[in-house]
């Protein structure tokens, strides 16, 4: 980089601040503070990795889907997750960090993915609970990101949110079918909801007073709502949906608070969240090993494609 005079930096910073304040978008080649860039790369990378790792818990059930209809739906959903990962790696790339570098960091554990994917999908009903609750929480988080101040990220999120809506609805429909099925099927649906409810609430991140990046991200309009605000919104949405399913949510403290106009809910086990985050969840090791293995086993495909391109003189760099 060439050195820039301090007054020029100040002028550029003023343009950046004014653009964000006017609710306009920052685009890739605009000047931006280094910390804004690195915050975005960290967040987009974590998000992209989550989409890619998120293919595993559900991919696990493709071969055992109970009907051709369910199997086709599940394959389409898992394929979407791969697509979402790629949209996001592209968005990160506009900030100067390439996909290969981000994948390296995922594989070596230097970057994280959402903790939720370190829980196992034990039964077919888990596919439904993941669609309804995990994708539902993701959508609640992601809809405000469609207005994120960074243009390429916001555009990727618009596309992702449109596609996620099918993910959530297929999960809900799956659970509804089980819930209205035999006694054993109903119990299976209830068990899946019991196991996925609390981890889904943890997806919104630590409480506001413990969230280290929140204030700055809100000021930069990367983030539009606080963790607790989004978590409450999700709980309020889910309670009537669970009722319509004929299933209960595993929280004895769940009560309507007339004064607040929201559902009160019980305390979240943040010790569990931190353990899973540290790598001690049920599937952390399995997920990352599977990802590395898939990458290594795909090496010959990448090499063959590159060799083919070179032979036909089309490799441009």
């Amino acid at each position: 980089m060439t050195t820039i005079a301090p007054e020029e930096t100040a002028a550029r910073e003023a343009v950046f601040d004014a653009t964000v304040a006017a609710d306009e978008r920052i685009e890739p080649r605009d000047w931006m503070p280094d910390a804004y860039r690195s915050t975005l790369v960290r967040q987009i990378a974590q998000h992209a990795h989550s989409e890619i790792i998120g293919m595993q818990p559900e991919g696990n059930w493709i071969t055992r889907a109970p009907s051709l209809r369910r199997k086709a739906i599940l394959m389409a959903k898992v394929q979407d997750e791969a697509g979402h990962g790629l949209y996001l790696y592209s968005a990160a790339e506009t900030l100067g960090t390439g996909r290969d570098e981000l994948l390296d960091k995922l594989h070596s554990g230097r970057q994280k993915y959402s903790s939720i994917f370190n829980y196992p999908t034990l039964t077919w009903a888990d596919v439904g609970a993941v669609g309804w609750l995990v994708d539902g929480a993701a959508i609640t988080n992601q809809v405000p990101l469609c207005r994120c101040s960074y243009g390429p990220y916001a555009r990727a999120m618009v596309r992702i949110c449109k596609e996620e809506s099918f993910h959530q609805r297929q999960g809900y429909e799956l659970l509804l079918t089980l819930s209205r099925g035999t006694e054993a099927q109903h119990a299976m649906a209830q068990d899946a909801v019991n196991r996925w409810w609390w981890p889904s609430l943890m997806m919104f991140g630590p409480p506001d007073d413990e969230s280290s990046h929140s204030a700055q991200s809100m000021a930069w309009k990367i983030k539009r709502h606080s963790n607790d605000e989004l978590r409450q919104r999700f709980v309020d949405i889910c309670v009537p949906q669970a009722e319509a399913l004929g299933l209960t949510l595993p929280d004895p403290d769940l009560t309507w608070n007339d004064e607040r106009g929201h559902w009160d809910f019980g305390p979240i086990d943040w010790a569990e969240f931190r353990e899973v985050l540290k790598g001690n969840g049920p599937c952390n090791e399995q997920r990352i090993n599977r990802r590395r293995q898939a990458h290594e086993e795909g090496a010959w495909v990448r090499e063959a494609a590159a060799a083919h391109a070179a032979k036909h003189g089309e490799a441009t760099r």
Partner: peptide
């Protein structure tokens, strides 16, 4: 300059090159 990609001053260290 590429329209969306970063300016070419970005890091191009000795990593194995990704596809274009």
């Amino acid at each position: 300059h590429p329209a969306e990609a970063p300016a070419p001053t970005a890091d191009t260290s000795a990593r194995p090159a990704d596809w274009p």
